[in-house]
Simulated assay, not measured.
Amino acid sequence: MQELPPTPERLEKGDITSVYIEDPVSKSDQPRLSSSGAVYALQKSGTLSDAQVAAAEQWARDYETGILGARDPESSKQSGKPDHEYCMLSRIRAADRCLYIREHIGPLGEKFLIDLMVNGLSVQKISEKHGKRRERIAGAIDFCLEQLADLYADMPGKLWFNK
C-alpha cells in the first residue's frame, strides 16, 4: 500500500519532516515523510513543556536512526561527507538509547512514543486504537514524555559519545 502525499494545507503546518529509511531489499535509502503534529498541538495548548517536546524529538531521531535504520542527519555534518565509522557508531548508540528508554518506560510507553512520533497519530487516533478516553491518553502522553525528558537528562554518559 503506497502512502498518499500530504495535502498542501498539511505541509503548511510545519510538523512534517522527511527522513531517509534504508530499504533492506534494495539497500538504498528511501525518503519517508514523518509527522508528529500531536506533540506540537499538545505543546501549543500548554500540556507539554519544551523539554518534553525536545525529548520526544530526540527519541524519534534515535528510533529512526537506531531501530528503523534512517540516515543520521548529524553524520553528514562532518566536513560535508558522511564518515562510515561515525554513521555506524551513531546508529549503535541510537539503538542503545532506545533500548535504555524502553527498559525504563516499558513496552506500553514505547508504543505511545511510536504512535505519536513515528506513526504520526493524533491523540484521537491513539485513543481509538487503545480504546481509552482522549483525555486519559493525553494525560498518559504527558506522563510518558515527562519520564522521557528525565531519562534523557539523566542518561549515563556511555550512551552518548563524541568523536
Rank of each mutant, 00 (worst) to 15 (best):
A60W: 00
I114L: 05
F112W: 08
Q2P: 02
R91A: 15
I16Y: 10
V118K: 04
D83W: 02
D50C: 03
R93E: 15
A149D: 10
D62P: 02
D29H: 07
L99R: 15
V19N: 11
D115N: 12
L121Q: 13
G106M: 07
W160P: 00
D29K: 11
E135P: 05
M155T: 03
D142V: 07
S18T: 14
K77I: 09
H84Q: 14
C98D: 13
S49F: 00
P31M: 11
E57C: 05
D115K: 07
Y86W: 13
S76V: 06
K44L: 02
V123N: 11
S79N: 11
L116G: 09
G157M: 08
S34E: 10
T65V: 14
V19Q: 09
Q30D: 06
Y100F: 15
F143Q: 13
D50R: 07
Q78I: 05
D62L: 01
Y63E: 08
L113V: 07
S45E: 14
L108G: 06
Y20D: 14
R32V: 08
V118W: 00
R97N: 03
L48R: 01
S79P: 01
M88N: 12
R136L: 10
P82D: 13
L68D: 08
S49K: 02
D23Y: 00
S76F: 08
E103N: 15
L145R: 02
R71H: 10
I105D: 03
G120H: 01
L42W: 00
S45N: 11
